[in-house]
Amino acid sequence: MMARWLDAIWQRPYLLLWLPPAFWAGNLVLGRGLADTMPPVTLAVGRWVVALAVLLPFVSAVLWRQRALLWQQRWLVLLCGAFGIAGYNALAYVALRTVPAVNVAFLNSTLPLMIPVAAFVLTRETVSSRTVLGILVSFLGVSWIVSRGNMQALLTLRFERADLLVLLAILNYALYSVLLRRRPAALDPLAFLAATMATGLLVLLPFWLWELADGAVIPVDAASLSAVLYIGIFASLLAFILWNRCVAMLGAVVTGVSFHLVAVFTATLAFIFLNEAVHGFHIVGIVMILGGFGLATLPMAKRHRSP
């Protein structure tokens, strides 16, 4: 019964869309909390070592069987590992050390705007007017929360050089999301993910060694290790499995709209765990985000209603 229930959800990607943003909201909160104690590249390496260690026992046999196909797709594996595993995460953690949280929240919301551009440039994929409208409505919802209900306040946001790291990180993930569509159907998705994780770690390795040589200290207290375990299992392994599944079934553009839900879950987590107050502008912004998300994904939800 449980297996049938899980399979039914797996066949309905519009239900899965909610989970990666929830996991990434926790990652954002933890990333901010660890900014002063955990070196950024070390955190990026740690999360993927954990994720790969958990995944490998389940896919090692498939990896061996499909080694020839993986080699044929080596450039796709390399690019996905460099952009989605190494570049996005390392740059985001470096930025979190200096970029104000409000700037990070606003700049993160540009991902659904970048993906259609990247999809058109790389694959000539077009976007429906309904999806574009949904992206814009949800983007306005994020902007409403960031501006605390005063859109003119966005004009007073100060952006420094470090903010470019956030945009560069988001661009990396936009490219990764679009490139995922090029994975051959014959290539097992979990084997492909494991290969990109390993490749991403290889890309991160020289930067990690440089960070250690520069005097970085790795904390080994229970709180830091628990945070890395959460980020590695939930925000890395599970979130990427679900995100990749949604991209494969819905496309990068529609899946990208769900990234705006990170703001919804971040506000919810802050309310539950940090006792931060919920104001009227939060409610209005969340309604706009959910409205835009529904507008962009409803046609896909109807299409995938039956397994």
Rank of each mutant, 00 (worst) to 15 (best):
R161F: 12
A22P: 01
M300Y: 14
A51G: 00
T37N: 07
T297N: 01
G46M: 09
I241V: 15
L69N: 02
P21E: 01
A191M: 11
L225H: 07
A68F: 08
S143M: 13
S177E: 08
H304S: 08
L154A: 13
L225C: 13
L205N: 05
V166Y: 00
R124P: 04
L179H: 11
V50E: 02
A174G: 15
A90P: 07
L179W: 11
L69S: 06
G294Y: 15
A101D: 14
P13T: 09
T37G: 02
W18E: 00
A86Q: 05
L69T: 05
T123P: 00
W10K: 01
A223R: 14
Q73F: 05
E276H: 08
P189E: 03
N27L: 08
G232C: 02
A68V: 13
A92G: 11
P307I: 14
Q11I: 01
D7Y: 09
E160H: 13
V146H: 02
I286F: 09
R181F: 08
Q66T: 10
R4E: 12
R4P: 05
L209W: 12
E276Q: 14
L107N: 08
I286T: 10
L250M: 13
T268Y: 11
R47G: 12
T42V: 14
G280S: 14
A44F: 00
T126Y: 08
L56W: 04
W144D: 03
L202S: 05
A270N: 13
P116Q: 06
P40V: 09
V94W: 12
A44H: 00
V54A: 13
V62G: 04
L238M: 15
L19Y: 10
R65C: 02
A86V: 08
A3Y: 09
V278G: 03
V228Y: 02
G141T: 07
A186C: 09
G87T: 08
R182M: 10
A263S: 15
S177V: 06
A174R: 04
L274R: 12
W5G: 01
L155R: 11
G26N: 03
P57L: 03
F234W: 14
S128F: 07
L30G: 07
V132G: 09
M288C: 15
H304M: 12
